[in-house]
């Protein structure tokens, strides 16, 4: 465990807590893409099936359980508990255009042709694009609340920090996972435009609003 990975994990944890707090305190899921959150629930479920087959550490297990659990709570909030506030008219990204190609790619390009490994690969690929429905929603409505921006910034930072972690692990541990690195780069690149808006607007006290 190096500092980049630890801070990355904390950033990921923070993002999830920010999102849950935003929904709970405001009693609303306005501006949040239910489709992205369903994709994250699929990502965690397919990646952490190894909870049943291998044990890494108490830290690793408890984070996995937390991520899976909170992803389902988030989906429940959006589609049940706070459903009247869910803005489905603006959440129109076609997720089958992500799931089908990503599923095909995981089947073709993986480390080992076994069920758990293919599902792990699928989750890595899917995570890299899972935020697209949310970014699509922000661009469609042309705005994002500050709290949603903080959530997106923390969530995007997590994978960017993992890139530093992989550089560190390559040099100091001889560890290299091409699939995770390529997907991590794609994931981080998708956030670049948002990072720019966050730094130039949100940090100066303005909310993100895009020209129509």
């Amino acid at each position: 465990m190096n500092i980049f990975r630890l801070v990355g994990d904390m950033s990921h944890l923070l993002a999830i807590i920010i999102l849950l707090m935003k929904m709970w305190k405001s009693r609303s899921v306005a501006g949040i893409s239910g489709k992205s959150q369903i994709l994250f629930a699929i990502v965690f479920t397919t990646r952490y099936l190894d909870l049943f087959t291998s044990f890494v550490s108490i830290y690793n297990t408890s984070m996995k359980v937390f991520f899976i659990g909170t992803s389902y709570v988030t989906v429940y909030f959006i589609y049940q508990h706070f459903k009247p506030t869910y803005d489905s008219n603006h959440d129109t990204f076609r997720v089958e255009f992500l799931i089908v190609p990503v599923g095909g790619l995981a089947f073709l390009v993986n480390h080992e042709f076994s069920l758990l490994e293919i599902l792990w690969t699928f989750s890595i690929y899917l995570e890299s694009v899972a935020i697209l429905p949310q970014l699509f929603m922000v661009s469609k409505t042309g705005e994002a609340e500050s709290i949603t921006s903080h959530y997106l910034f923390a969530l995007g930072s997590y994978r960017a920090l993992y890139l530093l972690n992989w550089i560190y692990r390559y040099y100091f541990e001889g560890f290299f996972d091409l699939i995770a690195v390529v997907a991590g780069c794609v994931q981080t690149i998708l956030y670049c435009d948002f990072f720019y808006l966050y730094i130039t607007k949100v940090l100066k006290g303005k909310k993100i609003s895009l020209p129509a």
Partner: peptide
Amino acid sequence: SVVCVSHDEL
């Protein structure tokens, strides 16, 4: 040598 894969990350 380079260790390719071990899913010890989150």
